[in-house]
Structure formats: C-alpha cells, structure tokens
Amino acid sequence: MVESIIETNGLTRSYGDICALKPLDLQVPEGEWLSVMGHSGSGKSTLMNLVGGLDRPTAGSLRVGGEDLLALSEDGLARFRREFVGIIFQQHHMVPYLTAVENVMLAQYFHSVPDEAEARSALERVGLGHRLKNRPGELSGGEQQRVCIARAIINSPKLLLGDEPTGNLDHKSTVMVMELLKELRAEERFTVIMVTHNQDVAAWGDRTIYLDDGVLVREERMKS
C-alpha cells in the first residue's frame, strides 16, 4: 500500500466569520496527481496554500511528508517550502529584475547553493535553453510559466503545487505546459496537487476532488 504524503483531519480555515475551508479529511498517496476543482471561493486555493505551508489552518491537523505543519515556526515553514514543495502560480510570479536563469537560481540560493549549470539544464528541460538571459518582461506568458516550472522543480521537491498554472494561457500553451508537467512527474516522481477551473486540465490527474463552499462534495478517479 502506498503511503500518504498528505493527511488532513478536520482541516479548517476561517477568515473572521467566513469559513473558507470547512473541516476536511483528505489523504493524498505519494506520487498521486490530484486535481482540485470548484467554483471561485470554493476553497481550492485555500487548501493549496495550507498544504504548501503558505498559510496556517484555523483548526484540524495537517501532516505533509510526515511533518506536522501546525507545529512549525515561520522559519520552519520557510524551510519546509524550500525543501519539500515546488509551487507554480497562475500569474507566474517572477522577480522582474532577474533573468530566467537567475529566477531559477533564486530557488537554489534559498535552498542551498546556486548552481548555474543546473539551472540552465532545468530551463533546457522545459524548452527554454534559448531564453536563459531574458528577463520576465521579455518572455511570453507560456514561457514565463515554463520558467516557473523550472524554478519549482529545481530543488527536486516531493510535492508540486499548481494554482491554476494554465489559467492565463491559451490552449496551445496549456497543452504544452501540461505535457511538460506530465513528463517531469514521470521522471521526478513527485506528487502533484493542481487547482483548476478547467475540466480538461483536471483530467490530466489521477483523481479529482470537487470543493463547494469549502466542503469536499465529490471525488472522481480518472481512468488511466
């Protein structure tokens, strides 16, 4: 039996009177690609932020990779993020004054030691070997997202989180990014949690859970 990389029990997140995520019990086996779907405000991103150590739950328990995230300090969560998690945002956030390769090296720098050759190789893997020295403003949306993928995988994370990573991309770029993620997952064997609105994107996963108003309402396993 495959061990769970993520285990939540009664995981809750409230913002004042608003409960963004109602008590959630969830297990994610290691290596699974879990798609999270739901309308805006359904609690998808909240779940992703909690699992990624970017936010703290109001109640419940949360273990990721055997680590009790509630017990970690601010700096402990930072260490967890740099050692365990790779994150891809919808708006492909990058440091605007650094080149593509430097943006990838930034994650290495916070993790351990920057290695330019390794960062170049990561960008070559995502098909951006010719854009190493370009700054974010000189790259298309799809290219920027691929830089973010390279940055997310550079430290060999056990868990890759995507918050609508294709939300700002056209169909062609979306397919390109998803194929790239699939390839990388096959090579690196990381677990994926992908938040999306798009049913086609969700279909790339092994399992899809549906959230509505902070509640897990449905679960669907994809046919392989």
Partner: peptide, 16 residues
Amino acid sequence: SPEIALMKAVGADRLQ
C-alpha cells in the same frame, strides 16, 4: 512586496 512575497513563497526565511 510581490518580489518579497515570492521569495518567501519559494522558501526564503527571515534571515535570507
């Protein structure tokens, strides 16, 4: 602040 937030998101601690 977006740049700082990004650095934190990719794992920068307070010292870094």
